[in-house]
Nucleic acid binder design. Structure first.
Length: 532
DNA sequence: CATGTCACG
DNA sequence: ACGTACGTGACATGA
């Protein structure tokens, strides 16, 4: 077969670590060659990652990059293969056209590299992020994608039966309460029933002006009426059913028997990963019903799942960046940080903090990470704006370093047009100078959040690189299989559990020396839920 | 294809 | 007077 002959010719070069390669999104190409038992070596540069590190907020598609940096309009895939129902496979394209398209692809990639790499090369911090974080992370992500995870389809099938029955019962009840059948999955029809026919009060409107029927609204209406509560129950079960219970089994690769997500490395502007097809970073956990989905994430025989997650990573990073003495001291003393915050805000001893006060402090701590306003905090705590303002003032009084950090970050963002993480990753803020108030304020909140979210992303990527190196070095059978922002999941051979947990904890804790101690929680189980 | 909603950190 | 927590992906509906 011609393909086999071509691959055989290319294999020695592709696998030669001294033969340097560059490409656009090489993680993908490496998978393609991997499917033909070719382990690509000598990967030197990737223009997707070059562009991402330089300008994470812009598009990194080759079309866009060519237009933006080279002023070239590339041949569109649709021009070659057509689109929609008329589209043909690339193998159906005549050789001359296919050659021109493919050759342009290679040509543009090289020219983009010649344009982007010099820019990276002269900026030490960005070069560090590219060379020491993103490029090595690409390889690790490719391995994790190939590893995949086993999904217990029988377990999901049983759950599907149960949830399906509950949905039917709820549907009947809801139609009864509404006095007529309607599509419960249609916000529009829910609105017509609740606000038209039943004349319930409109709580808030969607951006387009229609009465909202979201969770917060239905929760509020459920205080006085029976129907909204049922719709909420129906919605949450329908979500579980369509997005997880029915979807995950369909995503099992017939060749490997496992589910292989794609980790998008150049999508999130803050430096985080994104996961898609399927998204394994939004598997339910917050409710009992939802958590059962995680019971279907299982190890192969003779293995267990191990989950390792950073505790309070973003608040620790905030303490580090802000250099706030009080916050640093709380972390160094190993305090429950929300309790400690409550004690400060309410000016009471630690032991006297009530669970309600701790809950308030927790919301405030989250708000800080998100660049909250008094309005936002008030909305979240359902209190008066003035009261929210009081809490914020009290917090900043007790943690003046944090207050200074917030102001410093806004100012820096305004002056430079970007903010950066501890390791030098940059996030550009296009609207930080906008005359449009709300848009500018949104940019300010993003500016405050990005260094914390982004530094956390840097840290866990570096930890992944370090863990992967140790797994290779020790030739362990255990594998890293998932990343969920502050959590790493491993499929661990039974006799490697002690070794691996120690190795992972060590790698995650010592990936960098911050002014605060890091903390890692590790669990082991027969499924993802148990490991948590 | 936009909109609304909701799953996660 | 206004509209506000940060970052993602996926589903169903309905134009």
């Amino acid at each position: 077969m011609e393909r086999d002959w071509v691959l055989a010719q290319m294999k020695p070069w592709l696998e030669d670590p001294l033969a340097k390669k560059l490409g656009q999104n090489l993680k993908y190409d490496m998978h393609v060659f991997g499917n033909y038992q070719i382990q690509v070596q000598g990967v030197d540069h990737d223009t997707l990652l070059e562009s991402y590190v330089l300008e994470s907020h812009l598009s990194h598609s080759m079309d866009n990059l060519a237009q933006r940096h080279l002023g070239i309009k590339t041949i569109q895939y649709e021009e070659v293969c057509g689109k929609g129902v008329h589209q043909i496979g690339f193998d159906q394209v005549d050789l001359k056209t296919a050659t021109e398209y493919a050759a342009e692809d290679a040509d543009i990639t090289l020219r983009l590299h010649h344009h982007l790499w010099p820019q990276l090369e002269r900026m030490p911090s960005l070069r560090y992020v590219y060379e020491q974080i993103e490029m090595p992370a690409m390889r690790v992500l490719g391995i994790m994608e190939s590893n995949g995870i086993t999904i217990d389809r029988e377990k999901l099938a049983i759950q599907g039966q149960e949830v399906g029955k509950k949905l039917l019962v709820l549907e009947k009840e809801i139609h009864q309460l509404a006095g007529q059948p309607f599509n419960i999955q249609s916000p529009k029809q829910i609105g017509e029933i609740l606000f038209g026919q039943l004349q319930l009060p409109i709580v808030k409107k969607t951006p387009s002006g229609a009465p909202s029927t979201d969770e917060e609204v239905l929760q509020k209406l459920a205080e006085d009426f029976p129907l909204p509560a049922r719709i909420l129950d129906y919605r949450s079960l329908a979500k579980l059913m369509s997005t997880y219970i029915e979807k995950l089994p369909r995503m099992i690769n017939p060749k490997t028997g496992r589910v292989h997500t794609n980790y998008a490395q150049a999508v999130a502007v803050t430096g985080r990963l994104a996961s898609n097809d399927p998204n394994l970073q939004n598997i339910p956990v917050r409710t009992e019903e939802g958590r059962r989905i995680r019971e279907a994430f299982v190890p192969q025989a003779g293995y267990r799942l191990v989950s390792a997650d950073y505790s309070q990573i973003e608040l620790r990073i905030m303490a580090h960046i802000a250099e706030d003495e009080n916050l640093l001291a709380a972390f160094k003393a190993g305090k429950d940080i929300h309790q400690a915050t409550a004690a400060e805000i309410f000016a009471i001893p630690l032991e006297q903090v009530s669970s309600e006060q701790r809950r308030y402090a927790k919301v405030i701590n989250f708000g800080l990470i998100y660049g909250m306003s008094a309005y936002g905090l008030a909305g979240n705590l359902k209190i008066e704006r003035a009261a929210a303002q009081q809490y914020i003032a009290k917090y900043f009084e007790r943690y003046p370093g944090v207050a200074q950090y917030m102001e410093r970050t806004r100012q820096e963002a305004r002056e430079l047009g970007y903010v950066q993480t501890v390791f030098g990753r940059r996030l550009w803020l296009a609207e930080i100078q906008s005359p449009n108030g709300p848009r500018r304020q949104a940019a300010e909140r993003a500016a405050i959040n990005a260094p914390m979210q982004g530094t956390a992303a840097d840290l866990i990527k570096m930890a992944m690189i370090s863990v992967d190196a140790k797994l290779q070095e020790k030739a362990m059978r255990s594998q890293m299989i998932m990343q969920v922002h502050d959590e790493l999941v491993f499929e661990v051979a039974d006799d490697e559990i002690d070794d691996l947990t120690q190795l992972v904890r060590d790698a995650m804790l010592n990936v960098a020396q911050l002014a605060v101690p890091l903390e890692v929680d590790i669990g082991v189980g027969e499924n993802w839920d148990e490991a948590h």
